[in-house]
């Protein structure tokens, strides 16, 4: 309390006054606290409400169209015969190629940059470039894929070209995520390992990777789920929207789920919008499943 050190009568009166002022001030602070509490809560609600609205709309639109035939049919001119089989298989093929490629190259790059590379200007340039690449718009990767894989390497608008383009797109993200996970392993543990006579490779395999594996895996899966949802680069490299057979090899023409959904939703017939809704439900379900897998693996490999 202010002024409580003096003892005269007048100062006691002053004390009461300051007490009142303090009380008033206190009320003001409490109101402020409540106000901002409400602001933050409403901000959170806003996001959730938007998500629920979206989910609700899609479920209403698409749920009725989601049945076994939808999974088993190819694209068709008639909405009631349209299915997602080719697109789903195309996406799975693409991810099946992209996932191991990005994981191996990405983790190896991250290990090199964190554990081996000396702090020279070259490694700093590489580092800065990787971070910048992680923010490059996906359509730019599509153009790169078109030039490099489709035209120069003559892969055509094939699954392989799509998967390699996606690999380029996802790599910087996986590298950055893996680097962060590797950096989170305490230096003291590396020192403990080196002090016992371990070399760099042994330290990486036995100390660094086990401790950072959960983080690396989570980052990888989350960035792969971004690749699943990408449409622009695939359109650029020429993935087709209408295909009525399954891919039979790496060089087959293909389509992917987001492209298929985009095509349906741009049809004039109202029924196709429902088909698109059903497709979105399947895509969302796949993304959720991958995120759930990421959480599961993180919990499983989390350091004990």
């Amino acid at each position: 309390m202010n002024g409580s050190t003096s003892v005269s009568n007048t100062s006691i009166n002053n004390n009461e006054k300051t007490d009142k002022q303090q009380l008033k001030h206190m009320m003001k602070r409490k109101r402020k606290n409540k106000f901002f509490h409400a602001v933050f809560f409403i901000s959170t609600l806003f996001g959730i409400a938007a998500l629920l609205l979206l989910l609700g709309q899609i479920l209403i639109q698409g749920l009725g169209w989601l049945n076994w035939d939808f999974f088993n049919n190819y694209s068709s001119r008639k909405p009631e015969n349209s299915g997602i089989k080719a697109a789903m298989v195309g996406t799975l093929w693409m991810i099946g190629i992209t996932a191991p490629l990005t994981f191996i190259i990405g983790v190896a790059t991250a290990l090199f940059l964190e554990e081996y590379a000396k702090d020279t200007w070259i490694s700093r340039v590489i580092q800065t470039n990787i971070s910048n690449l992680a923010g490059v718009p996906s359509i730019v990767y599509g153009l790169l894929g078109l030039t490099l894989f489709v035209r120069m390497l003559h892969l055509g608008p094939s699954i392989l070209a799509g998967a390699l383009t996606m690999t380029l797109l996802v790599l910087p993200i996986i590298i950055v995520a893996s680097q962060e996970a590797i950096r989170a392993v305490p230096v003291s543990q590396r020192h403990a390992s080196y002090a016992l006579g371990a070399n760099r490779w042994q330290t990486i395999v036995k100390v660094v990777l086990p401790s950072s594996f959960a983080g690396i895996l989570t980052g990888s899966i989350l960035s792969l789920s971004r690749a699943i949802g990408e449409t622009a680069p695939l359109i650029v490299i020429g993935a087709v929207a209408f295909i009525a057979r399954l891919p039979d090899g790496l060089l087959s023409k293909f389509t992917a789920m987001p492209i298929q959904i985009y095509t349906w939703s741009s049809q004039p017939q109202e029924e196709f919008h429902h088909v698109a809704g059903a497709g979105i439900i399947v895509l969302l379900f796949m993304l959720l499943a991958m995120n759930a897998l990421a959480i599961f693996l993180r919990n499983k490999y989390q350091r004990k």
């Binding site: 305490p186 003291s188 543990q189 020192h191 403990a192 390992s193 002090a195 016992l196 006579g197 100390v207 086990p210 401790s211 350091r303 004990k304």
Partner: peptide, 14 residues
């Protein structure tokens, strides 16, 4: 290997 070391902070592996 011939010369062991113990650090300031206990640093067991996880």
């Amino acid at each position: 290997k011939e010369i062991g070391m113990v650090f300031q902070q206990p640093n067991p592996f996880p």
